[in-house]
Design a protein around this nucleic acid. Structure first.
Lengths: 175, 175
DNA sequence: CTGGAACCTGACGCACGCGTTAGGTTCCGG
DNA sequence: CCGGAACCTAACGCGTGCGTCAGGTTCCAG
Protein backbone atom coordinates (compact mmCIF):
# COMPACT_ATOMS: atom_id res chain seq x y z
CA UNK A 1 0.00 0.00 0.00
CA UNK A 2 2.43 2.50 1.12
CA UNK A 3 5.74 3.20 -0.33
CA UNK A 4 7.03 1.99 2.96
CA UNK A 5 9.46 -0.77 2.62
CA UNK A 6 8.49 -4.30 3.30
CA UNK A 7 8.31 -4.06 6.98
CA UNK A 8 5.52 -5.79 8.71
CA UNK A 9 6.70 -9.31 8.22
CA UNK A 10 10.25 -8.65 9.11
CA UNK A 11 9.44 -8.56 12.75
CA UNK A 12 12.66 -6.78 13.52
CA UNK A 13 10.81 -3.56 13.89
CA UNK A 14 10.23 -1.01 11.24
CA UNK A 15 13.35 -0.07 9.43
CA UNK A 16 12.67 3.21 7.79
CA UNK A 17 15.03 4.80 5.36
CA UNK A 18 15.54 8.51 5.62
CA UNK A 19 13.17 9.26 2.77
CA UNK A 20 10.47 7.16 4.36
CA UNK A 21 10.89 8.81 7.71
CA UNK A 22 10.89 12.18 6.03
CA UNK A 23 7.55 11.39 4.47
CA UNK A 24 5.85 10.09 7.54
CA UNK A 25 7.24 12.82 9.76
CA UNK A 26 6.66 15.70 7.39
CA UNK A 27 10.25 16.72 7.81
CA UNK A 28 12.83 17.00 5.09
CA UNK A 29 15.72 14.57 4.88
CA UNK A 30 17.92 17.59 5.36
CA UNK A 31 16.21 18.33 8.63
CA UNK A 32 16.63 14.75 9.80
CA UNK A 33 20.34 14.81 9.12
CA UNK A 34 20.57 18.16 10.83
CA UNK A 35 18.81 16.83 13.91
CA UNK A 36 21.15 13.91 13.98
CA UNK A 37 24.13 16.18 13.69
CA UNK A 38 22.79 18.14 16.62
CA UNK A 39 22.31 15.04 18.68
CA UNK A 40 18.55 15.14 18.68
CA UNK A 41 17.95 11.98 16.76
CA UNK A 42 19.81 8.73 16.46
CA UNK A 43 20.06 6.38 13.56
CA UNK A 44 21.53 3.09 12.51
CA UNK A 45 23.67 2.74 9.46
CA UNK A 46 24.02 0.14 6.80
CA UNK A 47 27.53 -0.93 5.89
CA UNK A 48 27.37 1.55 3.07
CA UNK A 49 26.50 4.36 5.40
CA UNK A 50 22.81 4.75 4.68
CA UNK A 51 20.67 5.65 7.65
CA UNK A 52 18.02 3.40 9.07
CA UNK A 53 15.49 4.37 11.68
CA UNK A 54 13.32 2.44 14.02
CA UNK A 55 9.76 3.46 14.65
CA UNK A 56 10.86 5.21 17.80
CA UNK A 57 12.44 7.86 15.62
CA UNK A 58 9.01 9.02 14.59
CA UNK A 59 8.01 9.42 18.21
CA UNK A 60 11.08 11.47 18.77
CA UNK A 61 10.36 13.62 15.76
CA UNK A 62 6.82 14.30 16.87
CA UNK A 63 8.24 15.29 20.22
CA UNK A 64 10.74 17.63 18.59
CA UNK A 65 8.02 19.10 16.46
CA UNK A 66 5.84 19.91 19.42
CA UNK A 67 8.70 21.44 21.32
CA UNK A 68 9.48 23.57 18.32
CA UNK A 69 5.89 24.68 18.16
CA UNK A 70 6.18 25.60 21.81
CA UNK A 71 9.06 27.87 20.95
CA UNK A 72 12.04 25.74 21.84
CA UNK A 73 14.99 26.19 19.53
CA UNK A 74 16.88 23.13 18.43
CA UNK A 75 19.81 23.99 20.70
CA UNK A 76 17.38 24.28 23.58
CA UNK A 77 15.96 20.88 22.80
CA UNK A 78 19.48 19.62 22.78
CA UNK A 79 20.06 21.12 26.18
CA UNK A 80 17.00 19.36 27.42
CA UNK A 81 18.35 16.02 26.32
CA UNK A 82 21.75 16.87 27.71
CA UNK A 83 20.19 17.65 31.05
CA UNK A 84 18.71 14.19 31.05
CA UNK A 85 22.01 12.60 30.25
CA UNK A 86 23.65 14.56 33.00
CA UNK A 87 21.18 13.47 35.62
CA UNK A 88 22.26 10.58 37.75
CA UNK A 89 18.91 9.36 38.89
CA UNK A 90 15.63 9.13 37.15
CA UNK A 91 13.75 11.38 39.56
CA UNK A 92 16.47 13.95 39.15
CA UNK A 93 16.07 13.83 35.41
CA UNK A 94 12.32 14.01 35.63
CA UNK A 95 12.48 16.98 37.93
CA UNK A 96 14.60 18.81 35.44
CA UNK A 97 12.06 18.08 32.76
CA UNK A 98 9.34 19.19 35.05
CA UNK A 99 11.01 22.52 35.67
CA UNK A 100 11.48 23.21 32.02
CA UNK A 101 7.97 22.15 31.15
CA UNK A 102 6.47 24.26 33.88
CA UNK A 103 8.34 27.28 32.73
CA UNK A 104 7.28 26.70 29.16
CA UNK A 105 3.72 26.16 30.23
CA UNK A 106 3.66 29.58 31.86
CA UNK A 107 5.23 31.14 28.79
CA UNK A 108 2.76 29.45 26.53
CA UNK A 109 -0.22 30.56 28.54
CA UNK A 110 1.11 34.10 28.41
CA UNK A 111 1.60 33.82 24.70
CA UNK A 112 -1.96 32.62 24.30
CA UNK A 113 -3.19 35.66 26.15
CA UNK A 114 -1.05 37.93 24.03
CA UNK A 115 -2.35 36.44 20.84
CA UNK A 116 -5.92 36.57 22.04
CA UNK A 117 -5.50 40.24 22.78
CA UNK A 118 -4.00 40.86 19.39
CA UNK A 119 -6.76 38.89 17.73
CA UNK A 120 -9.18 41.13 19.54
CA UNK A 121 -7.42 44.16 18.17
CA UNK A 122 -7.65 42.75 14.70
CA UNK A 123 -11.36 42.32 15.21
CA UNK A 124 -11.67 45.87 16.44
CA UNK A 125 -9.81 47.07 13.41
CA UNK A 126 -11.99 45.12 11.05
CA UNK A 127 -15.07 46.51 12.68
CA UNK A 128 -13.64 49.96 12.40
CA UNK A 129 -12.98 49.45 8.74
CA UNK A 130 -16.65 48.69 8.24
CA UNK A 131 -17.08 52.39 8.58
CA UNK A 132 -14.86 52.85 5.55
CA UNK A 133 -17.25 50.93 3.38
CA UNK A 134 -19.34 54.03 3.16
CA UNK A 135 -16.48 56.23 2.11
CA UNK A 136 -16.82 58.02 -1.16
CA UNK A 137 -15.21 55.60 -3.60
CA UNK A 138 -13.60 58.54 -5.29
CA UNK A 139 -12.04 59.55 -2.07
CA UNK A 140 -8.42 60.15 -2.83
CA UNK A 141 -6.12 58.18 -0.62
CA UNK A 142 -3.97 61.07 0.32
CA UNK A 143 -6.95 63.11 1.26
CA UNK A 144 -8.24 60.34 3.42
CA UNK A 145 -5.51 58.15 4.69
CA UNK A 146 -7.46 55.96 6.95
CA UNK A 147 -10.52 57.92 6.29
CA UNK A 148 -11.53 61.21 7.70
CA UNK A 149 -15.16 60.24 7.54
CA UNK A 150 -16.98 60.05 10.81
CA UNK A 151 -16.65 56.69 12.48
CA UNK A 152 -18.56 55.48 15.45
CA UNK A 153 -15.41 54.75 17.38
CA UNK A 154 -11.83 55.91 17.61
CA UNK A 155 -9.35 54.23 15.33
CA UNK A 156 -7.73 51.19 16.93
CA UNK A 157 -3.97 51.05 17.24
CA UNK A 158 -3.70 48.70 14.33
CA UNK A 159 -5.32 51.33 12.17
CA UNK A 160 -3.69 54.39 13.61
CA UNK A 161 -0.26 53.09 12.80
CA UNK A 162 -1.12 53.21 9.16
CA UNK A 163 -1.82 56.90 9.05
CA UNK A 164 0.13 58.92 6.56
CA UNK A 165 2.71 61.43 7.77
CA UNK A 166 5.21 58.83 8.76
CA UNK A 167 6.84 57.41 5.76
CA UNK A 168 9.43 59.47 4.06
CA UNK A 169 8.71 62.98 5.01
CA UNK A 170 6.07 64.62 6.99
CA UNK A 171 4.64 67.86 5.93
CA UNK A 172 5.01 70.49 8.51
CA UNK A 173 3.61 69.10 11.63
CA UNK A 174 -0.06 69.54 11.84
CA UNK A 175 -2.69 67.24 13.04
CA UNK B 1 8.95 75.10 5.58
CA UNK B 2 10.48 73.18 8.31
CA UNK B 3 8.75 74.03 11.46
CA UNK B 4 11.94 73.43 13.28
CA UNK B 5 10.68 75.86 15.80
CA UNK B 6 12.06 75.22 19.16
CA UNK B 7 9.03 73.97 20.90
CA UNK B 8 10.42 74.02 24.35
CA UNK B 9 7.15 74.28 26.06
CA UNK B 10 5.60 71.42 24.23
CA UNK B 11 8.09 69.42 26.13
CA UNK B 12 7.74 65.71 26.12
CA UNK B 13 5.54 65.66 23.09
CA UNK B 14 7.37 66.27 19.88
CA UNK B 15 10.91 66.27 18.60
CA UNK B 16 12.32 63.12 19.96
CA UNK B 17 15.87 62.19 19.29
CA UNK B 18 16.59 58.64 18.34
CA UNK B 19 17.75 57.73 21.81
CA UNK B 20 14.61 59.17 23.32
CA UNK B 21 12.39 57.34 20.93
CA UNK B 22 14.34 54.18 21.55
CA UNK B 23 13.66 54.49 25.24
CA UNK B 24 9.97 55.18 25.01
CA UNK B 25 9.40 52.57 22.34
CA UNK B 26 11.52 49.86 23.90
CA UNK B 27 13.31 49.45 20.62
CA UNK B 28 17.01 49.91 20.04
CA UNK B 29 18.34 52.81 18.03
CA UNK B 30 19.70 50.20 15.68
CA UNK B 31 16.21 48.88 15.14
CA UNK B 32 14.84 52.35 14.48
CA UNK B 33 17.45 52.99 11.83
CA UNK B 34 16.75 49.61 10.35
CA UNK B 35 13.04 50.33 10.17
CA UNK B 36 13.75 53.60 8.49
CA UNK B 37 16.01 51.92 5.99
CA UNK B 38 13.23 49.50 5.24
CA UNK B 39 10.74 52.26 4.74
CA UNK B 40 8.71 51.49 7.82
CA UNK B 41 9.40 54.67 9.69
CA UNK B 42 10.09 58.22 8.65
CA UNK B 43 12.19 60.82 10.33
CA UNK B 44 13.27 64.40 10.04
CA UNK B 45 16.88 65.39 10.07
CA UNK B 46 18.77 68.24 11.54
CA UNK B 47 21.25 70.02 9.30
CA UNK B 48 23.91 67.82 10.79
CA UNK B 49 22.02 64.69 9.91
CA UNK B 50 20.68 63.71 13.27
CA UNK B 51 17.24 62.18 13.26
CA UNK B 52 14.23 63.76 14.86
CA UNK B 53 10.87 62.15 15.35
CA UNK B 54 7.43 63.43 15.98
CA UNK B 55 5.16 61.76 18.44
CA UNK B 56 3.48 59.93 15.58
CA UNK B 57 6.58 57.82 15.25
CA UNK B 58 5.73 56.16 18.52
CA UNK B 59 2.29 55.27 17.24
CA UNK B 60 3.89 53.75 14.21
CA UNK B 61 6.32 51.78 16.30
CA UNK B 62 3.60 50.40 18.49
CA UNK B 63 1.81 49.37 15.34
CA UNK B 64 4.93 47.67 14.00
CA UNK B 65 5.44 45.92 17.29
CA UNK B 66 1.97 44.48 17.31
CA UNK B 67 2.25 43.31 13.74
CA UNK B 68 5.51 41.63 14.61
CA UNK B 69 3.86 39.93 17.54
CA UNK B 70 1.20 38.75 15.13
CA UNK B 71 3.87 37.11 13.07
CA UNK B 72 4.41 39.64 10.31
CA UNK B 73 8.00 39.93 9.20
CA UNK B 74 9.40 43.38 8.57
CA UNK B 75 9.31 42.85 4.80
CA UNK B 76 5.67 41.87 5.12
CA UNK B 77 4.93 45.02 7.04
CA UNK B 78 6.66 46.89 4.29
CA UNK B 79 4.45 45.20 1.74
CA UNK B 80 1.46 46.26 3.70
CA UNK B 81 2.53 49.87 3.54
CA UNK B 82 3.39 49.50 -0.11
CA UNK B 83 -0.06 48.15 -0.81
CA UNK B 84 -1.48 51.27 0.73
CA UNK B 85 0.71 53.49 -1.35
CA UNK B 86 -0.29 51.61 -4.45
CA UNK B 87 -3.97 51.99 -3.82
CA UNK B 88 -5.63 54.82 -5.65
CA UNK B 89 -8.63 55.30 -3.46
CA UNK B 90 -9.04 55.10 0.23
CA UNK B 91 -11.66 52.34 0.18
CA UNK B 92 -9.36 50.35 -2.06
CA UNK B 93 -6.56 50.75 0.42
CA UNK B 94 -8.78 49.90 3.33
CA UNK B 95 -10.04 46.81 1.61
CA UNK B 96 -6.52 45.63 1.14
CA UNK B 97 -5.85 46.13 4.80
CA UNK B 98 -9.03 44.34 5.61
CA UNK B 99 -8.03 41.33 3.58
CA UNK B 100 -4.67 41.09 5.22
CA UNK B 101 -6.07 41.57 8.68
CA UNK B 102 -8.76 39.00 8.14
CA UNK B 103 -6.25 36.47 6.98
CA UNK B 104 -4.02 37.17 9.94
CA UNK B 105 -6.94 36.97 12.29
CA UNK B 106 -7.70 33.48 11.08
CA UNK B 107 -4.07 32.51 11.41
CA UNK B 108 -3.87 33.93 14.87
CA UNK B 109 -6.95 32.13 16.05
CA UNK B 110 -5.51 28.91 14.71
CA UNK B 111 -2.26 29.62 16.47
CA UNK B 112 -4.11 30.20 19.71
CA UNK B 113 -5.76 26.85 19.36
CA UNK B 114 -2.46 25.17 18.63
CA UNK B 115 -0.83 26.70 21.65
CA UNK B 116 -3.75 25.84 23.86
CA UNK B 117 -3.49 22.25 22.77
CA UNK B 118 0.21 22.21 23.42
CA UNK B 119 -0.30 23.83 26.80
CA UNK B 120 -2.71 21.03 27.54
CA UNK B 121 -0.09 18.50 26.61
CA UNK B 122 2.37 20.17 28.90
CA UNK B 123 -0.16 19.88 31.69
CA UNK B 124 -0.71 16.22 30.91
CA UNK B 125 3.00 15.67 31.00
CA UNK B 126 3.40 17.41 34.31
CA UNK B 127 0.60 15.36 35.77
CA UNK B 128 2.23 12.26 34.45
CA UNK B 129 5.50 13.22 36.04
CA UNK B 130 3.76 13.37 39.37
CA UNK B 131 3.89 9.63 39.22
CA UNK B 132 7.67 9.84 39.07
CA UNK B 133 7.80 11.51 42.43
CA UNK B 134 7.40 8.13 44.01
CA UNK B 135 10.19 6.55 42.07
CA UNK B 136 12.96 5.04 44.04
CA UNK B 137 15.46 7.88 44.37
CA UNK B 138 18.22 5.45 43.73
CA UNK B 139 16.62 4.42 40.53
CA UNK B 140 19.33 4.53 37.94
CA UNK B 141 18.47 6.66 34.98
CA UNK B 142 19.37 4.09 32.44
CA UNK B 143 17.28 1.52 34.15
CA UNK B 144 14.34 3.82 34.22
CA UNK B 145 14.43 6.34 31.45
CA UNK B 146 11.11 7.89 31.96
CA UNK B 147 10.38 5.53 34.67
CA UNK B 148 9.19 2.01 34.41
CA UNK B 149 7.17 2.38 37.56
CA UNK B 150 3.47 1.95 37.18
CA UNK B 151 1.69 5.15 36.26
CA UNK B 152 -2.00 5.71 36.21
CA UNK B 153 -1.95 6.77 32.61
CA UNK B 154 0.04 6.27 29.46
CA UNK B 155 2.97 8.57 28.89
CA UNK B 156 2.02 11.66 26.94
CA UNK B 157 3.80 12.44 23.70
CA UNK B 158 5.91 15.07 25.35
CA UNK B 159 7.26 12.40 27.66
CA UNK B 160 7.53 9.56 25.23
CA UNK B 161 9.85 11.53 23.01
CA UNK B 162 12.36 11.59 25.77
CA UNK B 163 12.75 7.88 26.04
CA UNK B 164 16.24 6.54 25.75
CA UNK B 165 17.23 4.44 22.74
CA UNK B 166 17.31 7.31 20.37
CA UNK B 167 20.35 9.34 20.88
CA UNK B 168 23.55 8.07 19.51
CA UNK B 169 23.04 4.41 19.08
CA UNK B 170 20.34 2.11 20.03
CA UNK B 171 21.06 -1.22 21.42
CA UNK B 172 19.63 -3.62 18.91
CA UNK B 173 17.37 -5.09 21.52
CA UNK B 174 13.98 -3.55 21.40
CA UNK B 175 12.62 -2.81 24.72
C1' DC C 1 33.69 78.01 23.08
C1' DT C 2 34.44 73.59 24.56
C1' DG C 3 34.16 68.84 25.91
C1' DG C 4 31.74 64.79 26.38
C1' DA C 5 27.52 62.58 25.22
C1' DA C 6 24.92 61.40 21.54
C1' DC C 7 24.58 60.71 16.93
C1' DC C 8 26.05 59.42 12.06
C1' DT C 9 27.19 55.74 8.19
C1' DG C 10 29.00 51.57 6.85
C1' DA C 11 30.02 46.93 7.47
C1' DC C 12 30.70 42.68 9.63
C1' DG C 13 28.80 39.07 12.93
C1' DC C 14 25.48 36.04 14.85
C1' DA C 15 21.69 32.74 15.82
C1' DC C 16 18.18 29.93 13.63
C1' DG C 17 16.55 26.32 10.51
C1' DC C 18 16.83 24.67 7.12
C1' DG C 19 17.22 24.67 1.13
C1' DT C 20 20.12 23.63 -2.40
C1' DT C 21 23.75 22.37 -5.26
C1' DA C 22 27.85 19.44 -6.25
C1' DG C 23 30.05 15.35 -6.73
C1' DG C 24 30.17 10.85 -5.57
C1' DT C 25 28.39 6.09 -3.53
C1' DT C 26 24.92 2.60 -2.31
C1' DC C 27 20.85 0.04 -2.69
C1' DC C 28 17.63 -2.97 -4.66
C1' DG C 29 13.99 -4.52 -8.18
C1' DG C 30 14.02 -6.72 -12.41
C1' DC D 1 24.38 -8.16 -12.75
C1' DC D 2 22.72 -3.69 -13.98
C1' DG D 3 20.78 0.84 -13.90
C1' DG D 4 18.22 4.32 -11.87
C1' DA D 5 16.51 5.86 -7.56
C1' DA D 6 17.90 6.94 -3.26
C1' DC D 7 21.37 7.95 -0.38
C1' DC D 8 25.95 10.03 1.31
C1' DT D 9 29.10 14.31 2.93
C1' DA D 10 30.58 18.92 2.50
C1' DA D 11 29.71 23.38 1.91
C1' DC D 12 27.61 27.49 0.54
C1' DG D 13 23.19 30.40 0.53
C1' DC D 14 19.26 32.63 2.38
C1' DG D 15 15.81 35.29 5.11
C1' DT D 16 15.02 37.45 9.57
C1' DG D 17 16.24 40.94 13.07
C1' DC D 18 18.91 42.90 14.93
C1' DG D 19 24.03 43.56 18.00
C1' DT D 20 28.28 45.49 17.72
C1' DC D 21 32.37 47.59 16.39
C1' DA D 22 34.98 51.30 13.87
C1' DG D 23 35.87 55.74 12.73
C1' DG D 24 34.18 60.06 12.36
C1' DT D 25 30.69 64.17 13.17
C1' DT D 26 27.18 66.87 15.71
C1' DC D 27 24.83 68.63 19.54
C1' DC D 28 24.15 71.14 23.65
C1' DA D 29 24.94 72.25 28.61
C1' DG D 30 27.98 74.80 31.10
Amino acid sequence: MDTLVSIDEVGLGRRLRIGDLARVSQKSARALRLYEGMGLLGSHRTVGGHRYYSEHALTRLIWIDKLQALGFSLPQIRELLDALQAANTAPEAMNRIREIYEEKLAETRAQVETLKTLAGELEDSLRYLDGCQVCDPGHVLNACAVCDQPHAVDPPTLILGIHRHQNQSEGSGDS
